[in-house]
């Protein structure tokens, strides 16, 4: 019986009888929770997403026989509680973020990381991602139209291609900055 299964297995079974489909649903829910927490102003959104999933897993033995409806709604309700609790603990920034702080120059470590990560891309993709972000306003729209024409793809496909490349680049830069930061801490602790 499922009662004796590990909580995570029970959660997957609750999401869908087919394990592969259940795993896909789980990934979508976790990614959605992260987006939801970030959008509600919570930093360390992954921690809150895991906290939400843990709470659902703990409650599951009590609710799974009686709960009616899409499990996603249950996750949403728990996530809303997590947000409310975080707000009560003042873990959501309420003050306006100073403009000056947000527009500070891209630090040298970050700039070096961007260079490194761009170099990891094939030449045509480097040029593509930089070209895509070249213009502003109406010129940007025209430019994207031209790029799509040159590549013989739709503007929607161009947008998707640019987005996937940007996600890869951003992830690489964040990991690189994190690596730089840890190395600096390591060096200074040995001084």
């Amino acid at each position: 019986m499922t009662d004796n299964k590990e909580p995570f297995d029970a959660l997957l079974e609750w999401l869908d009888a087919d394990r592969e489909t259940a795993a896909q649903r789980y990934e979508v829910i976790r990614a959605g929770l992260i987006r939801m927490f970030i959008s509600n102003g919570l930093s360390d959104a992954e921690h809150y997403a895991d906290e939400t999933i843990d709470r659902v897993m703990k409650r599951l033995p009590e609710i799974k026989e009686t709960y009616v409806g899409d499990p996603v709604k249950y996750f949403h309700g728990v996530a809303r509680n997590v947000i409310r609790e975080a707000r009560r603990r003042k873990e959501v920034l309420i003050d306006i973020v100073p403009d000056r702080f947000l527009q500070e120059p891209y630090k040298s470590d970050a700039s070096e990381c961007l260079s490194q990560c761009l170099r990891l891309l094939p030449r045509d993709k480097q040029e593509f991602i930089l070209d895509y972000h070249l213009y502003k306003g109406h010129a940007k729209i025209e430019h994207h139209r031209e790029m799509a024409g040159e590549l013989a793809i739709t503007e929607g496909a161009l947008r998707t291609r640019a987005h996937h490349l940007r996600v890869t680049l951003e992830k690489c830069v964040l990991e690189c900055i994190d690596h730089f930061g840890r190395n600096k801490t390591h060096v200074s602790s040995h001084r």
Partner: peptide
């Protein structure tokens, strides 16, 4: 994300 965007747009 904002800092990354600033760096990317500047580099472009």
């Amino acid at each position: 994300k904002l800092r990354f965007a600033g760096g990317l747009l500047e580099r472009a």
